[in-house]
């Protein structure tokens, strides 16, 4: 089976997927190689899906603390006091 690869970002993951499709479309790969490629493709799809669904990133706000600017968690209720 294909070696598990780590994709540093979504951009390269999608790029690799497109590459796999092109390889399979070329007709130059054996059935065994195609199966490996397809397995790799499924792994990438699962990786992307997992990364995108499990992570809900916090919203941060820059605040001054002891003369330094630091990131703190931002409560969305903080936005509700006025409009402009």
């Amino acid at each position: 089976m294909a070696a598990k690869k780590q994709y540093k970002d979504f951009e390269s993951a999608l790029k690799r997927l497109e590459e796999i499709t092109e390889l399979m479309e070329s007709g130059d790969v054996s059935l065994e190689a195609s199966i490996d490629l397809y397995t790799e493709g499924l792994d990438i799809a699962k990786y992307c899906n997992k990364k995108l669904t499990e992570a809900e990133k916090k919203i941060k706000i820059i605040k001054e603390k002891g003369g330094l600017l630091v990131e703190q968690e931002f409560g969305e209720s903080e936005t509700k006091s006025e409009t402009n």
């Binding site: 990133k57 919203i59 941060k60 706000i61 820059i62």
Partner: peptide, 11 residues
């Protein structure tokens, strides 16, 4: 659109 994106607010 995408909760996996981190937002940083400069007030």
């Amino acid at each position: 659109r995408n909760p996996a994106i981190e937002l940083v607010i400069y007030p």
